[in-house]
Computed example of a mutant assay.
Amino acid sequence: MASAFAGIIADPIQKGLRLHHRRLHRLIDAVEKHWNAEHEDADFVAYDPYAAWLMDVFDILSSAYRIAKA
């Protein structure tokens, strides 16, 4: 329970020190470098959206089955 309220104290301190801002920019830079490294190859094809879509379809179907069964 204490960890749930730790953000009440820690977040304003981190905001004041601009730690969130720096972390966000480091994250964006790292993602950009990774993205550019993956896309240097012209034959790159992203299959992740298809896998995510299939997982969503199975999740929806299983939820519908559980609701219909109940």
Rank of each mutant, 00 (worst) to 15 (best):
Ile9Cys: 07
Lys69Tyr: 11
Ala52Ser: 11
Glu40Ala: 15
Val31Met: 02
Phe5Gly: 08
Leu24Gln: 09
Leu19Asp: 08
Asp41Met: 05
Asp48Trp: 08
Val57Met: 13
Ile9Trp: 10
Leu54Met: 10
Leu54Arg: 01
Asp48Ser: 09
Ile9Val: 13
Ala30Gln: 15
Ser3Arg: 15
Ser63Met: 12
Phe58Trp: 10
Ala4Glu: 04
Pro12His: 11
Gly16His: 11
Ala51Trp: 13
Tyr65Leu: 06
Val31Pro: 00
Glu32Phe: 08
Leu54His: 03
Lys15Val: 06
Asp48Gly: 03
Ala37His: 13
Ala68Tyr: 05
His39Arg: 15
Ala30Phe: 13
Asp56Leu: 08
Val31Ser: 03
His25Pro: 01
Ala37Asp: 10
Phe58Thr: 09
Tyr65Ser: 10
Asp29Tyr: 05
Ala51Gly: 01
His34Tyr: 03
Asp29Gln: 05
Arg26Pro: 01
Lys69Ser: 09
Leu24Ala: 06
Ala70Trp: 08
Phe5Ile: 11
Val31Ile: 09
Ile28Pro: 00
Asp56Gly: 06
Ile60Ser: 07
Tyr65Asp: 03
Lys33Asp: 12
Leu27Ile: 14
Leu17Asn: 12
Val45Gln: 14
Ala52Gly: 02
Ser63Phe: 05
Ser63Arg: 11
Gly16Glu: 11
Ala64Asn: 07
Ile13Glu: 01
Asp48Val: 08
Arg18Val: 07
Ala68Arg: 03
Pro12Trp: 08
Leu27Ala: 15
Arg23Leu: 10
Gly7Pro: 04
Val31His: 03
Asp11Pro: 00
His21Glu: 15
Tyr47His: 14
Ala30Ile: 04
Pro49Cys: 07
His34Glu: 09
Ala52Asn: 14
Ile8Leu: 15
Trp35Lys: 12
Trp35Leu: 06
Pro12Gln: 02
Gly16Ala: 06
Lys33Phe: 02
Arg23His: 11
Asp56Val: 07
Leu54Thr: 02
Glu38Pro: 00
Ala51Gln: 04
Asp11Cys: 09
Asp11Thr: 13
His25Gly: 00
Ala6Pro: 00
His20Ile: 02
Trp53Pro: 01
Pro49Glu: 10
Asp56Asn: 08
Asp59Tyr: 09
Phe5Glu: 04
Ser3Val: 06
Leu19Ala: 12
Asp11Ala: 13
Ile28Asp: 14
Trp35Thr: 15
Ser62Glu: 02
Glu32Ser: 10
Met55Asp: 12
Glu32Cys: 06
Trp35Gln: 09
Leu61Phe: 07
Phe44Met: 07
Tyr65Cys: 04
Leu19Glu: 13
Arg22Thr: 11
Leu19Pro: 00
Ala37Met: 04
Phe58Asn: 12
Ala6His: 02
Ala2Trp: 11
Met1Val: 12
Leu19Met: 14
Ala10Asn: 05
Tyr65Lys: 08
Met55Trp: 03
Ile8Lys: 13
Trp35Glu: 02
Arg23Ile: 07
